[in-house]
Nucleic acid binder design. Structure first.
Length: 274
DNA sequence: CGTTACCTGAAA
DNA sequence: TTTCAGGTAACG
């Protein structure tokens, strides 16, 4: 579910709310898989109780909640995970799987319908996301870096964009939207893109991710920000979720197919077949 | 590389 | 009843 803009929205919403706050306890829902898989829930609760949060960082789609002392709680929302700050008397949130209680009385609620999300308490946070490629919104991501990631690759460009080792943070929605804005068909062999196409794609990725962050992400169904609010980027989609509707750029009918195992949306006029 | 499994629920 | 869903690890 959540891609870079959705995770960044959570980070911005929660960073100042948790900084300096101590954990007073953790409670987990009864029954079903929990986000902590590499230790027993009781051991996890004992290990984090009393710890104080520092900076809340994002890397790709990972959230890194640093703890004073150097270790961190690394979270990945996967498909339906949400982390939100609530007060104890706020109404319950559906599919709440865990709650971190803070010393100012706030509750950090983890909701996750499909239970794919993961938490990892680690003394070496970087090891949790060591294979990630560059941050597409970073100061040091240039067209040349995208070109290097694509060079010689026969795989469809969409598959490469979804590969977190090449670029960190793109998922199915923003891969489709970026390729449409850049006027590139998702099945084009990655290594076959011209310089002009790579320049357009680099620009499209950055501008779409920035707009999506402004919009606080896409709330197709499950995503909410750190305060429980829905994003509005779904109103700006050009192709994703719009099969059968007309292209906002040229009026052609948006088509849906399957590429790299994922539902894939294109405008057949803007994005000619390879 | 593409496919399957992991989970639950909504929609077709 | 079947299919599909924003992700990714483990398969072959």
């Amino acid at each position: 579910m959540p891609e870079l803009p959705e995770v960044e929205t959570t980070r911005r919403d929660l960073a100042e709310r948790i900084r300096g706050r101590a954990v007073t306890g953790v409670s987990f829902a009864d029954g079903g898989p929990l986000p902590v898989r590499d230790m027993e829930p009781e051991a996890f609760a004992a290990a984090i109780r009393g710890r104080v949060f520092g900076e809340l960082e994002r890397r790709g789609k990972y959230l890194i909640a640093h703890l004073e002392g150097g270790d961190a709680l690394v979270l990945h929302r996967r498909m339906t995970g949400n982390l939100l700050s609530r007060r104890p008397d706020d109404p319950p949130d559906a599919h709440t799987r865990a709650i971190i209680h803070l010393d100012d009385g706030a509750e950090l609620r983890w909701t996750d319908l499909r239970r794919f999300g993961r938490w990892q308490l680690t003394t070496d946070p970087a090891s949790a996301y060591s294979g990630l490629g560059p941050e597409p919104l970073g100061d040091a991501w240039f067209v040349a870096d995208l070109a290097a990631a694509l060079r010689g690759r026969a795989a469809p460009i969409k598959a490469v964009l979804l590969d977190q080792r090449r670029v960190a943070g793109l998922g199915n929605i923003y891969a489709d939207e970026s390729l449409h804005q850049a006027r590139i068909h998702p099945l084009r062999p990655a290594g076959s893109l011209t310089d002009a196409e790579m320049t357009r794609l680099h620009q499209a990725i950055r501008s779409i991710l920035l707009l999506a962050i402004e919009q606080q992400g896409s709330s197709m169904r499950d995503h909410v920000g750190g305060l429980g609010q829905r994003g509005t980027m779904q109103e700006r989609w050009h192709v994703y979720g719009r099969a059968g509707q007309t292209c906002r750029s040229c009026g052609a009918v948006i088509e849906k197919s399957r590429v790299a195992g994922r539902g894939t949306h294109i405008c057949p006029d803007c994005q000619p077949s390879p």
